[in-house]
Computed example of a mutant assay.
Amino acid sequence: MAQDLRDVTFVQPSPSAINSFPVFVAIGEGYFAEEGLNVTVESINGSSAVLQALAAGQAEFGRPGPGPVLAARARGEDAVFIYNVAARSNFGVVVRADSDIQGPEGLRGKVIGTGTADGAEVGFARNVMAGSGLTEGTDYEFLTVGDGGPATVGFTTGAMDAYSASTADAAILNQRGMAVRDITPGEFARFFGNGIATMGNVIETDPELVAGFVRAFARGHAFALDDANRDTVLAHLKDANPQEGEDVQFQSALFDAVRSKTIPVDMTNGLGYQPPEVWEEWQDSLVSGGDLAAPLPDLTAAYTNEFTAMAHEAMK
């Protein structure tokens, strides 16, 4: 019964239901309720805001990017990644489809737009540019323009030459008639994107809460990957964000794009697994790009695969 459920808040860095689809599927299918949880979703602006909400105790779980999580830990905040949602990079540096720019080197002396000033997309773009030997402030500039309509305006006015976009952002731009093309080198696909995080004290004081949340989330994720459930999944997502579901064809295409990024290249360890070697690469790139002053004292404290392993056992 509803009165017996524990209220839990999940914060996401954008209002898109599709970007957080396992949460809404788990809500719609009753998986959280089966774990004794009543999950409320709140949308705020960017990964840094998500982490601030977690640190302030305003939410138990959120969906930040790995770069902001490491930056938060460097500030002394005990944020911990517990589930790798975007197992393949869900960001890309895009240019207008008719642009002459073919790769990061072509952005020397140019402006790259971002949705937020300090979200996951900023760190990702900085890594991509550093991979081509380009340094922010010397070889290129970032400009915070917002997402959706403002990003379209950024291109049409010439305020920006490229945009660090999520899979959803790029799909929306194309849907709105602003055709864009991804110029991100292929090797950056290994840099997984946003995932589920909580605070260390939540794990320490209430591990059953974390285990239950991850079990339900993983079930929602697996349910959504089964094409037999497609119509049900899209209905849950429309309930969560009616505006996103107004154009059924667009909703379906956007879901396909986002869902594809959540399937690991190697399924040996199942959904949600975080490769330690990629965490090392994330940290190295953030240090070289200046986002981190130095490597963390203990990188392994930033993430755990314990709860996904437990969830997989429970789902067998």
Rank of each mutant, 00 (worst) to 15 (best):
Leu5Ser: 11
Phe10Asn: 07
Ile18Pro: 10
Asn19Ala: 11
Ser20Gly: 06
Phe21Asn: 07
Glu34Tyr: 12
Val39Glu: 13
Glu42Trp: 08
Ile44Val: 04
Ser47Tyr: 12
Val50Asn: 11
Ala53Thr: 12
Ala71Arg: 13
Arg73Phe: 06
Ala74Ser: 15
Tyr83Arg: 13
Asn84Lys: 05
Asp98Val: 06
Pro104Lys: 05
Gly106Ile: 07
Lys110Ile: 12
Thr114Ile: 07
Asp118His: 10
Glu121Leu: 07
Phe124Lys: 00
Ala130Phe: 06
Tyr140Ala: 11
Thr152Met: 12
Thr152Asn: 09
Val153Ile: 14
Thr157Ile: 07
Gly158Met: 15
Tyr163Gln: 03
Ala165Tyr: 02
Thr167Trp: 08
Ala168Leu: 09
Ala170Leu: 03
Arg176Ser: 05
Ala179Val: 02
Ala179Arg: 07
Phe191Gly: 01
Gly195His: 03
Ile196Met: 09
Thr198Ser: 09
Gly200Asp: 04
Gly200Glu: 03
Ile203Asp: 04
Leu209Ala: 02
Arg215Gly: 00
Ala218Met: 14
Phe223Ala: 07
Leu225Ser: 08
Asp226His: 01
Thr232Val: 03
Leu237Asp: 04
Asp247Arg: 00
Ala253Trp: 06
Asp266Cys: 05
Leu271Tyr: 08
Leu271Trp: 10
Tyr273Pro: 07
Pro276Phe: 12
Glu277Gln: 09
Trp279Asp: 03
Trp282Asp: 04
Leu292Thr: 02
Asp298Phe: 06
Asp298Leu: 02
Leu299Thr: 00
Thr304Ser: 04
Met315His: 10
Met315Tyr: 09
